[in-house]
Simulated assay, not measured.
Amino acid sequence: MKQPLGVILAGGLATRMGGGDKGLLEIGGEPLLQRIIDRIEPQVAGVALNANGDAARFASYGLPVLPDTIPGFPGPLAGVLAGLDWAAAQGADSIVTVAADTPFFPCDLVPRLLLAAEDRPHLLALACTPRDGEEALKSGGGRKINRHPTFGLWPVALRDDLRAALTDGLRKVVLWTDRHGAGEALFPADPFDPFFNVNTPEDLARARELAA
């Protein structure tokens, strides 16, 4: 099996941060996006960035910039689709996606996603972490995990199926992944959730504390 390609998802509107590119915010003296690149690059065969608007603002990173092909900012699945189309042109079998606002995701993300997909019908798996005790009690049984749908392994072979689902109005990631029997790679959430992401100015302050 070929090593997956990596796609950084940065196509959102960042409304809770007042708009703009969250990936260009600085943490520990360097842009958030650079931290993401440094973490995913050793795990994959190549990296691209899913982002909309003027690609020139990312020129200094030297990455292919992939805009959504489905209009109207339909969410992360549009970024996944853009990544899958790019990967297909490269002759790749799969991609792994990571979010551009999540600076502490695991350094073994890719191998553990691949392991989670081993017994599945497709190269498809999502990262997840245990829920905290209070949330687990509220859930009333069932799987006590949080899935992180922007951190996944996605097969190029299903890209046309995903395109059709998006065109039909599907927006919720897990509805599509459940439909195709996705695996789940469980990561520890101690001492903090490695999929903690920067959505608000308060999150940014917290990320800077954690980086320090």
Rank of each mutant, 00 (worst) to 15 (best):
P71K: 05
N52I: 13
R39C: 10
A59G: 10
I36Q: 04
L25W: 08
E30Q: 14
E30T: 13
A48M: 02
D21T: 04
I36P: 03
L66H: 11
G29S: 08
V47I: 13
I37G: 03
R16S: 15
L9T: 10
A55F: 09
A48N: 02
G12W: 12
Q43K: 04
R39G: 03
P64W: 04
M17I: 07
M17P: 03
I40N: 04
G18L: 07
N50S: 15
D38S: 15
L9Q: 07
A48R: 00
Q43S: 13
G12N: 15
L25Y: 10
G29W: 13
G28E: 11
G20M: 05
G29L: 11
G11I: 04
T69N: 04
P31K: 04
A55L: 00
L24C: 01
R35N: 02
G19M: 08
D54K: 07
G23F: 11
F58I: 02
I27A: 12
G29P: 12
G29M: 13
V44I: 09
E26L: 11
R35F: 06
D68H: 15
T69I: 15
I40M: 03
N52L: 09
G19Q: 06
Y61Q: 12
G62S: 04
P42A: 11
V65C: 10
G12L: 09
G53N: 06
G23L: 10
R39Q: 11
G11D: 13
P71T: 09
G23C: 10
L33K: 10
E30W: 00
G23P: 11
L32C: 14
E26K: 13
Y61W: 13
R39E: 05
G29F: 12
R57Y: 04
A56S: 15
R57T: 01
G28R: 11
V47D: 06
L9V: 14
G62E: 06
R57G: 01
A48G: 05
G18Q: 09
P64E: 02
A10Y: 03
G28H: 03
R57F: 05
R35K: 15
A48V: 05
I36L: 08
G20L: 10
L24K: 12
V44W: 05
I37A: 05
D21R: 14
G46A: 13
Q43N: 09
L33Y: 12
L66S: 06
D21L: 01
E41I: 01
A55E: 11
A45Q: 14
L13K: 14
P64V: 00
Q34K: 14
A51H: 03
G20S: 08
M17H: 08
V44T: 13
A48T: 02
S60M: 10
I27G: 11
T69P: 00
D68T: 00
D54W: 06
F58T: 05
L13S: 15
L25D: 07
M17F: 03
S60P: 01
A55M: 08
A56I: 00
G53V: 01
